[in-house]
Design a protein around this nucleic acid. Structure first.
Lengths: 252, 252
DNA sequence: GAAGATATGTTAAAATTTTACATAGAAGTC
DNA sequence: GACTTCTATGTAAAATTTTAACATATCTTC
């Protein structure tokens, strides 16, 4: 009982990177904070986590930090993104082939992804490395020039990859959305890549946390009607939800 | 004055791994604890340290601990590899275009690489992420299926990348070398990729730490006479060195 | 040299962690 | 089955650390 809880805590920390004691308390409402503290203490002694004021952080997480912009970006709206990623992960089926983009939400999806016999294509380096930890899963990186701010790749040559590959599903996340301008991002070649993916995939799931609604980025890569499922959080406005459901898009 | 102190603190932490506030106070008796706290706070925001109860610890220190297979591999023969990587880095010239493979030695090369206006092609995800930290440098990842044990990619489609790209120089590292079997590695598609690179590059530098001499891996991707410069450590056998120099290969 | 910005010091308030002790349950022993 | 012992857990006060707020000093820049 104790062992399991400690493993769960370690898992949670590896996925989230960092947790406060309060957050941990929410996950384990039936034990006291003191018990959780003692668990953290044990994990610390095993060298698996580092205790910091207010909670603890995963050693793996620390290894990634270097003060880069990417690491900073990850900290924003974490909770919503994890929830969205969990919803998306629950939709992934065994023996399927799918594309995942390279954004931070996709990064969380990678962490939550079940270790099934599936093939994942991605243009995100961090996503790829995360997925490479899974035993049964197969990863292919779409190569190209590396965009430094989000560690994703994009290249016209990517087309070559898609000529001979097939995937049923594309799971994407956008940096911005309005009903008029659709889903947009900040890089042209990335938008081109995503459009290419869109034309290849049989189904499109879009992950969109509500903080991105109303924003517009320079390059639109998909419109409202292009997607099949919208995965979002509780703060998603009801009137927008209606707009999506009118187009037979599942909002979850 | 502040800047210096902060750098000193960072240095101390990198050397000691961890320091309490009291210890820091001993090092800097002429400023108050509060000032030191504020310094630590700044360093934390830069991602260079992690504040823990009572003091702080160096990120680098934390990075040493880990249980992942890739990280483990990194720990072996670290010192030699770093020295080799430094030698290789010193050969890189501004305004050039080069290929770097995805091995662990290449990873160190990425860390040591000068931040010049150069373009680097690589099939290593970790290498690419490391290089993406540099401001002036341009990185392109050769995509493909991700090999889980060394986080590099390989794919027949990679040819598409090389059709329209040029690089003067390829810097590679081998998993094994004997004079008879040449430079070899453990994956066929990786060997294919490297052979392709070899035919593209005008010059070839090989990084080879002496622990790999006498070993044979299944797939040979280059022979002794294919390379122009061999970068190795002090333990490199003299008789082999002669063999290389006879072929007009620079050994350093 | 004055106004504003930056750096530092001092102290009280807030928050977190530790300690110590109490209780409950599991495991073994006779 | 009752007893002891050990481990896990809970509770609350005590100790420590961190933060916040304000005061002072130092440095810039015009």
């Amino acid at each position: 009982m104790k062992r399991e809880r400690i493993e769960e805590i370690a898992d949670l920390l590896d996925k989230r990177g960092k947790l406060t004691l309060e957050q941990l308390d929410d996950f384990f409402p039936d034990v006291s904070q003191m018990t959780l503290r003692r668990d953290l203490f044990q994990l610390e002694q095993q060298g698996r986590i580092i205790r910091v004021r207010g909670g603890a952080m995963s050693v793996k997480e620390v290894q990634k930090v270097s003060g880069e912009p990417y690491a900073k970006k990850q900290a924003i709206h974490t909770d919503e993104k994890i929830k969205i990623a969990q919803k998306a992960a629950s939709l992934i089926e065994e023996n399927s082939s799918l594309f995942v983009d390279g954004g931070t939400t996709a990064m969380y999806l990678a962490k939550e992804m079940p270790d099934l016999n599936i093939h994942v294509f991605t243009n995100g380096l961090a996503v790829a490395i995360e997925l490479a930890q899974k035993k049964n899963l197969n990863v292919t990186v779409i190569g190209g020039q590396v965009l430094k701010d989000n560690l994703s790749t994009a290249s016209p040559v990517a087309r070559a990859y898609f000529d001979n590959t097939n995937f049923e599903l594309a799971v994407m996340s956008a940096s911005a959305f309005t009903p008029e301008n659709g889903f947009s991002c900040g890089s042209q070649i990335e938008a081109d890549l995503l459009k290419m993916v869109r034309s290849k995939a049989k189904a499109m799931y879009m992950m969109l946390d509500s903080s991105k609604i109303g924003k517009i980025m320079p390059y639109t890569f998909a419109h409202l009607e292009d997607i099949d499922v919208l995965i979002t959080d509780e703060n998603f406005p009801a009137e927008l939800k209606e707009l999506f459901t009118q187009q037979n898009i599942v909002v979850m």
